[in-house]
Amino acid sequence: MVNIRLTAEEMRYMALLQDLTGAIARDCIVDSENNRVIFLVRPGDAGKAIGRRGANINRLRRLLGKEIEVVEFADDLESLVKNLFAPARILSVRVAQRNGRKILYVTVDPSDKGRAIGKGGRKVSVARIVLKRYYDIDEIKIR
């Protein structure tokens, strides 16, 4: 497993998520560039973190003044990629080394390509941050 250090701010956000929702956060990433916080929650806790009709996420968004992303954590790369790009159907995941860089090739169902990329590339951006942190992946290509 990767050795990750959390800042005091990230730990406060994780505690706030747990207090408000009851969901346990495994990790928290503050993306100041895009004014958002990405929570990786325990498997099975995403629904609890989001809340009925997104109520918990909306409350957190108002409290923090930032966009909130919630992803279920997974121990293996393929499951984590599927969680990051949900609800898009992932057909295959492959990692290749090119010029000393790790490139992740994600094959999605053609009808789900837009869902996988997300509005304005949002899903790919979140996936890039999370996968860089855990698997040192430099680039993501969606096919």
Rank of each mutant, 00 (worst) to 15 (best):
M1W: 02
I4L: 14
E9D: 15
R12T: 11
M14S: 09
A15F: 09
L20D: 13
A23P: 01
I24W: 08
R26Y: 12
R26Q: 13
V30F: 09
E33M: 05
R36L: 14
R36S: 06
V37A: 10
V37Y: 07
P43T: 01
D45M: 06
R53M: 14
G54D: 08
A55V: 15
I57N: 04
I57L: 15
N58A: 13
N58Y: 12
R61C: 13
L64D: 14
K66R: 15
V71D: 03
V71A: 03
F73V: 05
F73Q: 02
D75K: 02
D75Q: 06
D76K: 08
L77W: 01
S79F: 00
N83Y: 04
N83K: 12
F85G: 00
A86C: 05
R89A: 07
L91E: 15
S92N: 06
S92K: 04
A96R: 10
A96H: 08
G100K: 08
R101D: 07
V106L: 05
V108P: 02
D109V: 09
S111A: 03
S111R: 07
S111D: 07
S111W: 05
S111F: 05
D112C: 07
A116V: 04
G118F: 11
G118W: 07
R122D: 14
V124S: 06
S125K: 10
R128I: 10
V130N: 02
V130R: 00
R133Q: 12
Y134D: 05
I142A: 06
